[in-house]
Write a protein that binds this DNA or RNA. Sequence first.
DNA 1: GTCTAAACGTTTAGCCCTAAACGTACCAGG
DNA 2: CCTGGTACGTTTAGGGCTAAACGTTTAGAC
Lengths: 165, 165
Amino acid sequence: MSTTAAEIAAAWRRERPGTPTDSIEVFTPIVRLAKLLTDDRTRVLRAAGIDRATLDLLSVLRRAGPPYTLTTRELTERTLVTAGAISQRVARAEQEGLATRAPDPSGHKAVAVTLTAAGHEVIERSVDAVLGRDSELVAGLSAEEQDLLIPLLGKLEGFVRTRVG
Amino acid sequence: MSTTAAEIAAAWRRERPGTPTDSIEVFTPIVRLAKLLTDDRTRVLRAAGIDRATLDLLSVLRRAGPPYTLTTRELTERTLVTAGAISQRVARAEQEGLATRAPDPSGHKAVAVTLTAAGHEVIERSVDAVLGRDSELVAGLSAEEQDLLIPLLGKLEGFVRTRVG
DNA sequence: GTCTAAACGTTTAGCCCTAAACGTACCAGG
DNA sequence: CCTGGTACGTTTAGGGCTAAACGTTTAGAC
């Protein structure tokens, strides 16, 4: 059994009265849930022989629709990782034949990343498994509870984005 | 500007009708918030010359109260990382003089990890900075909104824990 | 045209984690 | 005893990320 967020906050107040603990009960479960979910997804995908970072990359390209092409900069904007990480992801995907890199003719010095047929096949094969699994996990909340939760998370994410990095 | 969770779900439905998208609007903001928060915390702590993993370790020991000692197994239970990661964290903290390792006299083959005076000082110096920062970020929601959000997150975390690893 | 500033992508060093293999200590049954 | 099982902690191989330094291309000022 793991320590609850409420217990962590109480422990700080007991040990160090005056410690600002008001964020703990909100952020601790968020960080924990994210870890549980991403670790679980990593395991699901390993069984399918693919890694999570590559799946994220292929997903973004697949969702873009035909011709399944985005520049490195667009990928960076859509994925919340650094440009360096995108560069590494694309290099790995290219290595495995799941995506290709080509100069983009849109002015600027841009690189166009495109899904290959093999990459398309991988994403079609994995996306339902991954999202189906997530679907099972989100079912711990009723539809009404989810409708309550979603706007609160959206508001919090928006606020945090204005204050970080 | 980044893609919203609603846009991601809509894109999947447009590109692949039938894709199970009901989890996306819940889990996407959770995973994103966790990344924004942990990356931000990493930066705050780097400015103070300490890394996040070490702070987590020292925090757990500090919250335990005098004599600030826990076994490796207890640390593992309280932190959601593997025993191997704890072993590495403790080794780093020991290297820097922030914690010590000693055989635990409680039967079994256990290792007792204890906060040193230097470790105690580091945690006292950092915890208010970190939690104060989090406090600013959680203020994007009103107290009422937080009271609505907390039990929903708790319920979801509990459910997910029963279904994963 | 030329030159400077900005945009873009890649590379590298360093950090941290997981999973799995491993070594060792304790305990209970025969 | 002693022997197998179990609990505990450590080590290692490999993956992924960030930040920062870097090289290159493009656009704009003049």
